[in-house]
Computed example of a mutant assay.
Amino acid sequence: MNRLATGIDILDRQLGGGIPAGSVVLLTADPASQSELFLYELTTTRGTLWLTTLRSEVAVRDALDRCPMPTGNPTVRDVGGDAPLDVANKLVRDLPEGANLVIDVVDMLERTEPPRFRKFLNDLQTHMVNTRGLTILHGLKGESVPENRDLTEHMADIVFDLETKIDGSEIENRLAVPKFRGGQALDETIKLRLAERVSVDTSRDIA
Rank of each mutant, 00 (worst) to 15 (best):
H127T: 08
P178L: 03
I136F: 14
K179Q: 07
I136C: 07
E147C: 06
L124K: 08
N148F: 00
V129N: 12
L109W: 00
E172Y: 02
L134W: 00
L124I: 04
D161S: 14
R111D: 02
E113C: 12
V159W: 00
A176C: 10
E163V: 12
M155T: 15
P178V: 02
S144K: 10
G183H: 01
P115H: 10
M155Q: 13
T126N: 06
A156P: 04
S144F: 07
R111T: 00
E163S: 08
E170N: 10
L151K: 07
G142M: 11
F120N: 07
F160T: 02
T152N: 02
P146G: 04
F160R: 04
K165L: 11
S169G: 09
L134G: 00
L162V: 02
K141W: 10
L134D: 00
D167Q: 13
E110M: 13
I158Y: 04
R132V: 04
T131H: 07
V177A: 07
L162E: 04
L134A: 00
G168V: 11
M108A: 13
P115S: 05
E172S: 14
E113F: 14
T164M: 13
D157K: 05
F117C: 03
D167S: 12
A176E: 11
G168A: 13
T131W: 01
L162S: 06
V159I: 15
L162T: 01
M155W: 04
S144H: 12
